[in-house]
Computed example of a mutant assay.
Amino acid sequence: MPKRILTGTVVSDKGDKTIVVNVERKVKHPLYGKIMRRSKKYHAHDENNEMSTGETVRIEETKPISKLKTWKVLERVGAAAAPATPKVSEVTAEDEGEVKAES
């Protein structure tokens, strides 16, 4: 029987040699026909602790490694998205004076 291969996003890398991968799939509702997103988390074995949170990875089914781990990391598909940094606008003393005068 062939091994299943899934693609998902790493949501946690806190365990030693373990990552948690969130895999999303789309299913059609049997009665109403609406396309719904379903997700499931899998614990996967990461031998060298190479993966980090936010990366897209491919995981492969394997024999049980521990109580929760029955998957291992095959490869990194995409890098983690850069965190969005909010732009901080500079407020000068003059601007604060105008705001106080208006209110």
Rank of each mutant, 00 (worst) to 15 (best):
V23K: 01
R4D: 15
T18E: 09
E50A: 13
T53F: 01
S52P: 10
E60G: 14
M36N: 13
K40V: 08
V77N: 05
L6G: 11
T92E: 05
T9P: 06
T7C: 11
V20A: 04
E47D: 10
I65C: 07
I59C: 03
T92N: 08
T62Q: 08
V88I: 07
K34M: 11
K3A: 13
A101R: 10
A81E: 13
V88G: 08
K34Q: 08
K17C: 14
Y42I: 02
V77W: 00
A81S: 13
P30I: 02
L68P: 04
G97N: 05
G78T: 13
E61F: 11
E61C: 04
K87L: 14
S39A: 09
A93H: 01
T7K: 13
M1W: 10
K26L: 10
P2I: 00
Y32W: 03
M51R: 00
D46P: 05
E47G: 02
I5K: 08
S66K: 02
G8W: 00
V11I: 14
V23E: 10
P64F: 11
E55P: 08
A93F: 01
P64L: 09
K72P: 06
R38Y: 04
I19C: 06
Y32G: 11
E102L: 14
K41H: 06
P30Y: 00
K26I: 09
K100T: 04
T53I: 11
K26C: 02
N49K: 00
V99E: 10
P83C: 08
L68I: 05
V88M: 09
P30N: 03
K63H: 13
G97T: 05
V77K: 00
R4E: 14
R58S: 15
V27P: 06
R25G: 07
T18C: 13
E102M: 11
V57M: 00
W71H: 01
K3D: 14
G54T: 09
M1V: 12
S66W: 01
L31D: 14
M51Q: 02
M51D: 06
L74N: 06
N22P: 03
K87P: 07
A81F: 03
A84I: 05
T62L: 06
W71I: 01
V11M: 09
H43E: 10
T70Q: 15
K67V: 04
K72S: 12
L6I: 06
A80V: 06
E24M: 03
K41L: 15
L68T: 10
K67G: 10
A81H: 12
A44E: 05
W71D: 02
D46W: 01
K69D: 10
K67H: 09
V10P: 12
E55N: 05
K72I: 07
T18L: 14
L74I: 14
T70S: 15
E75I: 01
K87R: 04
G54D: 12
G78P: 08
R58L: 06
A93K: 01
E90Q: 07
E61V: 12
K40T: 14
E60Y: 03
K69T: 12
V57S: 00
E61H: 04
T18P: 12
K41S: 15
T92G: 09
Y32D: 07
T70R: 03
G33R: 00
E75D: 12
V73G: 05
L68F: 07
V99P: 06
I59E: 03
V57E: 03
E96Y: 00
G54Y: 04
T92V: 06
V57W: 00
V88F: 08
K17W: 07
E61P: 15
A101P: 03
T56D: 13
V91A: 15
V27K: 09
